[in-house]
């Protein structure tokens, strides 16, 4: 309601995220450029997650709790497999939402 009124400036404003200088477009469709940007961010984040899993495995191994062959040869039991199946299906459902909804 009072948003049009002057307010006290934050003495320590956060660093702005906008960049001076035009962001180039490399494809003929601006949405495709954006899709690339999002995909590359996902590529990065998946790699970060993979590194975290690797860290956990290495720590478990160092502490002698699990050795790497146990991870490689892991077979889920029936109920674990069912839970994992659910996770996979929900994951694909979210990824391909745009094709199915």
């Amino acid at each position: 309601m009072y948003s049009h009124l002057p307010h006290k400036a934050d003495p320590n404003p956060p660093q702005p995220t906008t960049l001076r200088g035009r962001r180039p477009e490399f494809t003929d469709d601006p949405m495709l450029d954006r899709l690339y940007a999002i995909t590359l961010a996902l590529v990065t984040e998946l790699s970060v997650t993979r590194a975290r899993v690797d860290t956990l495995e290495r720590l478990l191994e160092r502490k002698g709790l699990v050795d790497s062959s146990e991870v490689e040869n892991f077979t889920p039991d029936e109920s674990e497999a069912a839970k994992r199946g659910d996770i996979q299906q929900q994951y694909l459902d979210r990824i391909f939402r745009v094709l199915t909804e």
């Binding site: 320590n12 995220t17 494809t27 450029d33 690339y36 590359l40 961010a41």
Partner: peptide
């Protein structure tokens, strides 16, 4: 060329964002 450029440009932008986020929470 376009794919290479998109990877390069986005890698640069992500590198900046990553650094900005790391620094932003400990700048004081």
């Amino acid at each position: 060329f376009r794919a290479w450029s998109l990877v390069r440009r986005n890698t640069m932008e992500m590198r900046q964002k990553t650094g900005r986020d790391i620094v932003g929470r400990q700048r004081e």
